[in-house]
Design a protein around this nucleic acid. Structure first.
Length: 339
DNA sequence: AGGATTTGACCATG
DNA sequence: CATGGTCAAATCCT
């Protein structure tokens, strides 16, 4: 449903992709169960074994099955990725061109009230160009300045979607936009869709927040890269050019333990003042410059680690709840693919 | 005063 | 026709 959908996906390919994801999901569930079983046994046996125990070697009891399941999961990812890659070879060219006759508006504005009728909403709905999808459990500053230009209730979604564009759209013609939508509440989960590439030169580096995270323990983020097999564009005249990881696997934003409700999340203006549901709308959070014309899904959460890595996309995961990560990961992927 | 957000309206797409 | 993406006036904040 979203614009991120690929309109002309061969249905069969997508179907296969969904099947693969479902398979992966099933494997993940088994893996989860296995972990739970192992952990509970370990806990029972060890009694008061001090450690947090969460990580790694705790599950050495069924290494073979665990490994097998992990391999299955990763294979599903790989299969899905290749299916998706083949499914849409031609969507890259697309540039969010606004075919509408410019912004010559000011001339006949006159009738300020009621319908100016000029060309409001005149635009081309952008299909997919450079799209990155990111799932976060909190909102992180991404170093760019965003201006909210819309909010919309989305069908079958209890939370509205918020539309942001680069603050420098006007002065520098930066066409980057992003959409932020809260997906769930319980553990808050936000989906951020980045589109377009930043051409502005105004990257505000929040040094402490932006860290290229290696798969280090204690940190958590899952990055799934849906590479459409197009080599990452190299337009690095922008900001992230200096970023060594910018292209194929952009750095996942690392965040300090900073709560989403903090300072920079506050809305400034306050038009109607109806911020009923969210306190999250404005987040100038995360953003990785849309660099390549690929699809990315980044799932982030906080907690311990368990790093998986696949050969194609990078899957760096960690979470205090494997279930939460893998489960939401597949759910999101499914949702993404099915749209 | 200038800039940001809210919100209803407009319009392309499927 | 329904839905989603964008525009722009109105409003608010700094």
């Amino acid at each position: 449903m979203e614009h991120s959908s690929r309109p002309e996906n061969p249905p069969s390919a997508r179907k296969h992709a969904v099947e693969e994801l479902l398979r992966g999901q099933e494997s993940a569930k088994q893996l989860r169960d296995l972990f739970m079983k192992v952990f509970s046994q370990a806990a029972a046996a060890a009694g008061g074994d001090g450690g947090d125990g969460g990580d790694g070697d705790g599950g050495a009891r069924h290494p073979a099955s665990v490994e097998d399941l992990v391999v299955k999961v990763l294979r599903s990812f790989d299969n899905t990725l290749s299916l998706l890659s083949r499914a849409e070879p031609d969507e890259v060219s697309q540039v969010p061109v606004r075919s509408c006759a410019v912004k010559s508006e000011d001339s006949e504005e006159s009738s300020k009230t009621s319908v100016p009728r000029d060309r409001r909403g005149c635009y081309k709905r952008r299909k997919t160009s450079d799209t990155q999808i990111r799932m976060d459990h909190n909102l992180i500053d991404d170093g760019h300045q965003w201006r909210k230009y819309g909010q919309k209730a989305i069908l079958n979604s209890e939370f509205p979607r918020n539309y942001f564009r680069c603050t420098h759209k006007n002065d520098q013609g930066c066409l980057a936009t992003k959409q932020v939508q809260k997906m769930q509440d319980a553990p808050p989960l936000y989906r951020t869709i980045y589109q377009g590439q930043h051409t502005c030169k105004n990257l505000i580096l929040k040094s402490p927040s932006l860290i290229l995270d290696p798969p280090s323990p204690g940190d958590s983020s899952i990055l799934v890269s849906f590479n459409t097999s197009i080599p990452p564009k190299q337009d690095d005249d922008n900001n992230n050019s200096s970023n060594p990881f910018s292209s194929s696997t952009f750095p996942s934003v690392k965040h300090e333990p900073k709560l989403p409700g903090e300072d920079d999340l506050k809305p400034r203006g306050g038009g109607g003042g109806c911020h009923d549901d969210e306190s999250f709308y404005n987040n100038n959070n995360n953003n990785h410059q849309s660099e390549s014309s690929d699809y990315y899904a980044v799932f982030e959460s906080a907690g311990e680690i368990s790093a998986l890595s696949s050969d194609q996309g990078d899957v760096m995961s960690s979470s205090h709840s494997f279930d939460m990560i893998v489960g939401s990961e597949f759910d999101s992927l499914l949702e993404f693919v099915q749209c």
